[in-house]
Amino acid sequence: MLKLENITKQIAGRPILKDVSFEVTQGQTLCIVGPSGAGKTTILRTIIGLTNYDSGEILLNGQKFIPQIDNINQGVIGVVFQDFRLFSHLSTAENISLAPRLKTKTTPKEIQAATEKLLAQLGLTDKADLYPFQLSGGQKQRVAIARALALHPQILCWDEPTSALDPDMRDNVVSLIEQLKQENITQIVVTHDLDFAQKIADQTYELAPIK
């Protein structure tokens, strides 16, 4: 599915990533673990195209893949940010339907139906008209997941999904990741929480700080 080969990156002459190589197959959940400063978020940002890398190669389904932001890789990779990054001026339903409305050729009725389906799937039906500031941390996270899933990505990336949540909510995230796994969605999860990683990972990649 997605393979990274010897990805290396320096920032201001300081090595951040060195020969990072791993592969995640369809429907698997890969956890990238390591202490703070090991480059976990940097590797995630590299995969989603928000950060460039200096050398190495990324392959998607055996083909060379250059992660890009904007519409080039639309539908390939979805991301749930650590701080969710919901659009504060849009309601839950609007957050979810914005990208399909602007980026796909589906009709407004179809978009509404798909949004309602995602809301139901993530237990957000009664939150459809609420704004992000009216939601709890866990609810915001579920909106962020729904927003990412609305474009049917092949791979869903999570950045530290448990860092802003209490222990109960952490268990909910475990369930959500399991649920998405049942739907054969490939997931890459960056976390510093080894216990959490153990619960969800099919495989784990450990990043250590470069000395």
Partner: peptide, 14 residues
Amino acid sequence: DRGQIEAGQMLGLN
């Protein structure tokens, strides 16, 4: 917030 723009980019918006 720069994060709002990044979120838009990740949704494929131009």
